[in-house]
Design a protein around this nucleic acid. Structure first.
Lengths: 390, 390
DNA sequence: CGCTAAAATGAAACCAGTTTCATAGACGCT
DNA sequence: AGCGTCTATGAAACTGGTTTCATTTTAGCG
């Protein structure tokens, strides 16, 4: 927003856009150098040959110590003198040495890698249409990076073998499951992981007796808070939008919170269920139209997720109902787009940063057998315009 | 959308929601079995001990062949008789054998892994706020999975070392760069990869002389098509929304297409620039308000990405301007939300499926020195409601 | 100064596969 | 039958680190 606005004559291109010289090529290589020529790797000889990458033996020689000492020094093992450590570090820098993680992993039987398995909605083949998961993905990536772990990512079809293989083949030390979809089949599948003692955590509602594996938001409480807020603002005919079948246990819990809040206030329960597990604008849009047409006037909607709520807002607008004057809307998740809908969406925020952190933290605890503490994340009500003001 | 609607009396919970029995625990394990007890791994003895995982030697013994034959058989090497292959496969199945990828990688000097490096907008620390990248991420994941490659994912801060390390430490065979952000610094950094002959590809505008590395949509042509469409629908004062600084070369190209289309028709160029590289609803929202306030009436907006266009639509609504009657809007990307805005957003679709496919395909070609063919993806105009009809 | 314990180091085993190289057997041909 | 070629297989080398175990240094102390 820094640049001033301006109007230029028709067809003008600002001079600085004209690319006076063509975009510069990467550091003086010829035009056809962009793929390595196979075969020339081995023969060491003239310039341009690929030098064999240095090993810890090369460092050892240069630093005048044994190879095992190099290994220790580079890992900051306690048993190396400061002097040696310095010399080794310098030699490594000099030769631009990088450990070979495969060798390291092979011997140490650890990979320093976590695998994130996203399971897909079997119908749409798209579990990631919901930006909420993007947010989770981002926080998980960061949380694992912060702890020095790499992250492998994989989309799982429900037909797949549910890649316990990632652990079995020593690609990863632990598994993180994430997604909406065919929850039942999925729980059934990952349950077997426990038997082969593979460390894993799952984003989802807590399952009894498995407090370590299942981590999730307090959906019941969050939804209750949102609906209470609507009630407090005088709304009486509040619809619920979301699939509460067993495929979507999170939504089920949110529905429970919704029902509880209504129960407290003695208000009617209006469901607009739909079978499609993939929560999207489209589904919310359709659902609200059906609901209005069949159930008549409502004065509020609680969407089981923001996408549903946003779809509902669009549907309401299509029926010339004003948000929030005629119908107040509250969502769940607080996706990045929520503040920028029109009106801005009031919603129950799931703390994805904390969630990612907790998933990774707990997984690492499982991996090395430390006890687990929390498995629930608390939500918070974010009041914006769509519910009719603070 | 299958379930019927219904209204229940206040406070009712549907019977099937009552969780008759608590959610079943994973296959009959005690409550505190959810973390492995360290130390009990080694001693093989009573039940419950962790059995040492089988190696290829175990398979060899069981199948009555040598270990090297096992290796060959499992990799479907040509030099194994069908009979032997069968016996080995069966033995492997019997012992539930999985290769140790670390050993495999170490010896074969390949990882069958690609690394996806997402670079972040240095200001917002969020390169993934744009769902477009989610779509890219998804398609890249699938494309590499389809080719049997694992995908490592990592968020890169512009301050980072730009993890050529992923290749140098033999974690990955090749690198894929993706994101918006500080493009200049970023190009400068990855340019060095070429010197250490690390295979990589980048999603972004083509850089001269490096046709293998840079892959992107035909942004100029796409934007031109979109603006032409607006002109064909009678719009004359068409604003452009997007940062065209050197940090956003894609947007720059789209601006070029915009200017070209206007030039053809002899129409004025109206820019609403902003300095923030992160394309978001918020920025589009603010930009359109500024633009209207300063430039007076416009009858169309071309957003350099969908998020900007959506933000603009919200801003227009705030000023009581109707879309598309008063102002037509066209975006770029075709994010999943585009069909579900109100009105549905007309936009230039980037074929993310093809893009992911091409990125991975070209990267694999670079890796093993095959020549590269295409590096550009064509876009397509998707006409919906926001531009004033087909 | 001599003795002991602790710290630092080196030699060699080890991780679990792939790959090379040598060899045995099968087969076709003269 | 003798010979060469090709296929299938096994033995052993090899990948590049970590870890164990033995050995040498160093430090502390009477």
């Amino acid at each position: 927003m820094g640049d001033p606005l301006r109007v230029l004559p028709p067809g003008t291109i600002r001079p600085d856009l004209k690319d006076p010289e063509p975009r510069r090529a990467l550091r003086g290589r010829g035009p056809d150098c962009y793929h390595p020529r196979p075969g020339e790797h081995q023969e060491a000889g003239s310039k341009g040959m690929r030098v064999k990458r240095p090993t810890s033996f090369d460092i050892a020689e240069l630093a005048g110590v044994s190879q095992s000492t190099v290994s220790r020094a580079l890992r900051n093992d306690a048993m190396v003198s400061e002097d040696t450590r310095q010399r080794v570090a310098q030699a490594a820098r000099l030769l631009n040495y990088k450990v070979d993680v495969n060798a390291r992993n092979l011997r140490s039987q650890k990979t320093n890698t976590l695998a994130l398995l996203l399971y897909e909605d079997p119908v749409t083949s798209q579990s990631l249409i919901n930006p909420f998961f993007l947010s989770m993905l981002s926080s998980i990536t960061k949380a694992s990076a912060r702890r020095g772990y790499d992250l492998l990512i994989s989309f799982q079809q429900s037909s797949d073998d549910w890649s316990a293989d990632y652990a079995a083949s020593k690609r990863a030390d632990g598994l993180i499951f994430l997604g909406y979809g065919d929850y039942l089949r999925y729980v059934d599948k990952i349950s077997r992981l426990d038997e082969v003692s593979t460390a894993f955590v799952t984003w989802g509602p807590v399952v009894q007796g498995q407090p370590g594996h299942f981590i999730g938001s307090d959906n019941i409480r969050g939804a209750r808070e949102g609906v209470r807020h609507l009630i407090a603002r005088g709304r009486k005919r509040i619809a619920f939008l979301g699939d509460i079948s067993e495929h979507c246990p999170e939504f089920r819990d949110r529905y429970t919170g919704y029902v509880e809040a209504l129960g407290e206030a003695g208000l009617p329960v209006i469901e607009a269920l739909y079978a499609d597990a993939a929560a999207s604008e489209e589904v919310g849009h359709q659902a609200i139209l059906n609901l209005i047409d069949r159930e008549g006037p409502i004065d509020a909607v609680f969407g089981a997720c923001d996408l549903l709520a946003i779809g509902a807002m669009n549907g309401l607008r299509e029926r010339s109902l004003r948000v929030p004057e005629d119908v107040a809307v509250v969502g769940f998740d607080d996706i990045v787009a929520a503040p920028f809908t029109s009106p801005p969406l009031t919603t129950i925020r799931q703390d994805t940063a904390a969630a990612g952190e907790l998933l990774v933290e707990n997984l690492l605890r499982l991996i090395d057998g430390r006890p687990i503490e929390t498995t629930q994340i608390s939500t918070s009500l974010v009041v914006r315009g769509s519910c009719g003001g603070a």
